[in-house]
Design a binder for these strands. Sequence first.
DNA 1: AACAGACACAACCGCAGTCAG
DNA 2: TCTGACTGCGGTTGTGTCTGT
Length: 273
Amino acid sequence: MAAQMVMQGWGTVEGGGWRKGPWTAEEDKLLIEYVKIHGEGRWNSVSRLAGLRRNGKSCRLRWVNYLRPDLKRGQITPHEEHIIVELHARWGNRWSTIARSLPGRTDNEIKNYWRTHFKKKTKASSSDQEEKSKTRLLRKQQFEQQQNQLQKLQHQQQYHCQFQQQLVQNQQQFSIMDMRKIMSLLGVSENKVTSSPPQARQEMTTSTCPTTTSEEQGLFYSTLSGDACTSEVSTEDLLWDGLWNTEDIHGDNNWSAICVTSKVGMHNFAASV
DNA sequence: AACAGACACAACCGCAGTCAG
DNA sequence: TCTGACTGCGGTTGTGTCTGT
């Protein structure tokens, strides 16, 4: 937001009447209201219906990359970075495909991250530079975490109800095939999925849990790669902490045990059945 | 304190795919 | 089958901020 405020200077109006450049808070508000009422899609009618002087493309981009309530803002965690590296090795610059495996992250975000972090690394990979970069990253991360938590709370309060349904739909589209792909990439043998109890499998992929968020998927990946520690710990992360017990996975590969030991998970599963 | 270069990221552009008419 | 509108994606640009000298 701060960046947006300072960048407002170069906003222009094109010949066709479309505004370009950074979005103002007022425009954001109008777009949010529009999506609230009409839902996502039909972007070309946004200008007419919402009174925005922005073309549909611009509106969609703003929504997808910035205003969506399920966006996970803040620094890419080491765990996410790991996934990005793995998936990029496999799919190349298919950012949207990679983004689908990182709930709450946009293709644009990942693309930018890759450009600034990995292109650079291939050019100049001296440990000295990396160390400096890490320090800087860490400092910024601390600051952004605070901002992120604030923003998250605001967004979630405002849109929680409206997007619950949509998130559930998204989860349903998250097929088991996709999960297998990721798992094989991350070196997790497929039989961990196939050997899981049918009920648990179904619930993982088609859960109708009313409080399911994209964060949950993030935690799911966290368990898959065996990297249970993420550097970004939000209040919500803590809340979801009980959902997947990583020790259960690592120790026994016992999916039913996960369901039983998961405090929040149990509650949600019970609600969904 | 001033400057230059690196960095971060929002936003734009062009192209391709999809789909309804 | 064709066409135009719409949408999504990947590449690129522009601008403010940060950091080192």
